[in-house]
C-alpha cells in the first residue's frame, strides 16, 4: 500500500453517507441563515423591512399577480435579447481580433478600457441619446454582455495551440476552415466562461437601467415596492432575479458538460 495520502489533508474523512450528510448540512445552514435574517431584522430593523416570514406570506400573491409576471417577462426577455446580441457580436469581434493582428492592435485598447470601467456610468448619458426608453436597457445589456464574451473568445483564439493550425495547413485548410473549424471550437470553453460573466453583467445592467430610466421590469418592481414600504414584495422580485442568475449560470455549466464532452479543464 502506498503511504501517499489519497486526498488533501485539508479535507476531513466522511463518516456518514456522504450524500445525505451533505444535503443535511446544506439544509441546516439554509435554515440557520433564514433564522439569522428573521432574528436580526425583527430585532434591529423597522417593521417594514423584508423578513423570511413576511416574504413567505406574500410570495403566493406576488407570484400569481399579473403585474409581477409581466414585469418578470419584460426583464427576462430583454436580458436574453441583450445576451444574444452580445454573444454573437462578441464571438465575431473576438475571433477577428484573435486571428488578425492589425484588428487586435486597433481594437484592444477600446475593448479592454470598456471592459474595465463600470458601464452603468453610461446609463444617464444614454437617456440623452435614446430617451427614457427600453432602448437604453437593450443597448447597455448588449454592450455589457459583448465585452466579456469578446475578450474571452479573443483570449481563447490567441491561446490556440499552433499544432492545430499546423495540422489544418497540412490538410490544405482555407482561412475560414481555420477560423470556424478550429479557432472557434477550440475557444468554446472560453466562450462559455465569458458567457457566465456576461450573464452576470447583463442582469446588473438591466436592473440599473430599469432603476434609472424607470422602465417596466423586475428592477423597477423592486424599486417601486421598496419605496412604498412593500419590502416583502420587493424581496420576491430580488429572489426571482437571483434565481434567474443561478439558472443562467447552471445552464452554462450544463452546456459546458453537454456540448463540450471533450473538454477537460486542466
Amino acid at each position: 500500500m502506498s503511504a501517499v495520502p489519497q486526498s488533501a489533508p485539508l479535507v476531513r474523512p466522511f463518516v456518514l453517507n456522504p450524500g445525505v450528510r451533505k444535503l443535511a448540512i446544506r439544509i441546516g445552514t439554509g435554515i440557520l441563515l433564514l433564522a439569522l435574517w428573521e432574528g436580526l431584522v425583527t430585532w434591529l430593523a423597522p417593521s417594514y423591512v423584508a423578513r423570511p416570514s413576511g416574504v413567505a406570506r406574500v410570495l403566493p400573491r406576488v407570484v400569481s399577480s399579473a403585474e409581477f409576471r409581466s414585469d418578470a417577462k419584460v426583464t427576462v426577455v430583454s436580458v436574453f435579447e441583450g445576451l444574444g446580441i452580445g454573444v454573437v457580436l462578441g464571438v465575431v469581434v473576438g475571433l477577428t481580433m484573435g486571428r488578425l493582428r492589425d484588428v487586435d492592435a486597433l481594437l484592444r485598447f477600446y475593448v479592454s478600457s470598456f471592459f474595465a470601467m463600470p458601464l452603468i456610468a453610461l446609463v444617464p448619458v444614454m437617456t440623452l441619446w435614446f430617451g427614457y426608453t427600453g432602448t437604453v436597457r437593450l443597448v447597455i445589456v448588449s454592450f455589457g454582455a459583448f465585452l466579456p464574451v469578446c475578450l474571452n473568445v479573443y483570449d481563447g483564439t490567441r491561446k490556440l495551440p499552433a499544432q492545430y493550425v499546423e495540422v489544418a495547413d497540412s490538410y490544405h485548410a482555407r482561412w475560414w476552415n481555420v477560423w470556424f473549424g478550429i479557432a472557434l471550437p477550440a475557444s468554446l470553453p472560453y466562450l462559455l466562461a465569458g458567457f457566465r460573466l456576461a450573464a452576470g453583467r447583463a442582469l446588473v445592467a438591466a436592473v440599473i437601467a430599469e432603476y434609472l430610466v424607470s422602465l417596466k421590469g423586475l428592477g423597477y418592481f423592486i424599486l417601486y415596492d421598496s419605496r412604498t414600504f412593500h419590502q416583502n414584495e420587493a424581496a420576491v422580485a430580488v429572489i426571482a432575479l437571483a434565481l434567474l442568475g443561478v439558472a443562467i449560470n447552471s445552464a452554462a455549466g450544463f452546456a459546458t458538460r453537454r456540448l463540450l464532452p471533450w473538454y477537460r479543464p486542466s
Binding site: 423586475l218 428592477g219 422580485a237
Partner: peptide, 10 residues
C-alpha cells in the same frame, strides 16, 4: 450569481 444592485433598495 445574484445581481447585487437588486439589494440596494433593501
Amino acid at each position: 450569481a445574484t445581481p447585487m444592485v437588486a439589494l440596494i433598495p433593501a
